[in-house]
Design a protein around this nucleic acid. Sequence first.
DNA 1: CACCTATGTTTCCACTGTCAACTTCTGCAT
DNA 2: ATGCAGAAGTTGACAGTGGAAACATAGGTG
Lengths: 208, 208
Amino acid sequence: MTSPDDRPYHHGDLRRVIIDTAIAMLDEPAGPQFTLREVARRAGVSHAAPYKHFPDKAALLTEIALIGFERLREALAAGSAGAPPGAVPALVGMARAYLEFGASNPALYRLMFGAGMDRSLHLSGRAMGAFDEVIGLLERGQAEGVIRPRPVRGQAAACWAQMHGLTLLALDGLLLPEKVGDGAVDAALSVLLEGLAVDPARWVQGHG
Amino acid sequence: MTSPDDRPYHHGDLRRVIIDTAIAMLDEPAGPQFTLREVARRAGVSHAAPYKHFPDKAALLTEIALIGFERLREALAAGSAGAPPGAVPALVGMARAYLEFGASNPALYRLMFGAGMDRSLHLSGRAMGAFDEVIGLLERGQAEGVIRPRPVRGQAAACWAQMHGLTLLALDGLLLPEKVGDGAVDAALSVLLEGLAVDPARWVQGHG
DNA sequence: CACCTATGTTTCCACTGTCAACTTCTGCAT
DNA sequence: ATGCAGAAGTTGACAGTGGAAACATAGGTG
């Protein structure tokens, strides 16, 4: 005896509900293969209603990916802001924030970088904000004299590649201790820092 | 005027043909979303025939991914074997082979590491052979005294993460010069070598 | 030769993404 | 207030999908 369909004809905020529902469904077994009809079902609307807000399923996925990039940018900014003073600790904080973002949003992360995304998506300003966070921090580090003076975009690429790779390997369960030893993430971060910092020994402790 | 259906009832080698066809279709727009029915169509058999060889589509994709790991292992072995003497050049050769494998087999590479793969797949011996190539090379480098004496599995994780990340960013078109400068791949490799090698300056030329 | 089993085929089902036509609201100009 | 255009939702269709079931054929073994 649920309420006898006093649901209004117009949902009022369907677009948002569709996006939220879809993001939630991303982390279910089906992943991004979730069904548009099931989204509609959970939102309590007819199976064709979503088409009033998104031309097709790909458009919905693209929108979700963009939201993911915005969240990532916020997470990175927070991660570097919450670190001890100095560009290198900020970089470490940002790296940990990146990894945690991936671990907390596995399917979303995969969607953002996965196949099927429009190539131009990654180049859009909305998606590039996260990359700019890294570049800004590296520039600051060079200005402080703690990051080696090299082309900053190359360094950023190295950072991003390392973070991206670590995140995905972790998501794939490839960083299990039995395969890669304990503290593989820390080890990889150390290698990265040793490649970037002017005085690695100052930041990387315990060469064990 | 094609031959009037002299096709024998039994295909003879359907399993192999299905796998080959599927691998070929992987690099078409649909990617791993290719249709099992289309595979059957191209193989010239009925749409249900593939089910005699694979319990479902996921099983076919898993088999393909395993084949991919084997090919990757071969490519890595060849890449290091074809390099100048010494563990560090071999490592560089292996790195380039890794990147080229990804660039040459984008969809296959994504499939191998993508979501939806059984977690246990990556842990299987068939898939871990590639990882062992890296570990063996690093051990050799440490024995030669050219790779820093650190836990080798951690170093391997760093290598793999960097390669994995670079490969995927490249596939996503994120390493375009306009975003990341020229030679981003080389820059990232340099950072990695500077983090691994005992005497980086000996291997990494041109700081600037 | 007869028959068992692996491999293929046909037929069927529930379900999907998407479209078109229809209905019901909401907002705005009058 | 009124009336109407268009946005937002609904219903019902369609072709195509993955998969199951039942049937057909062929090759190999007694």
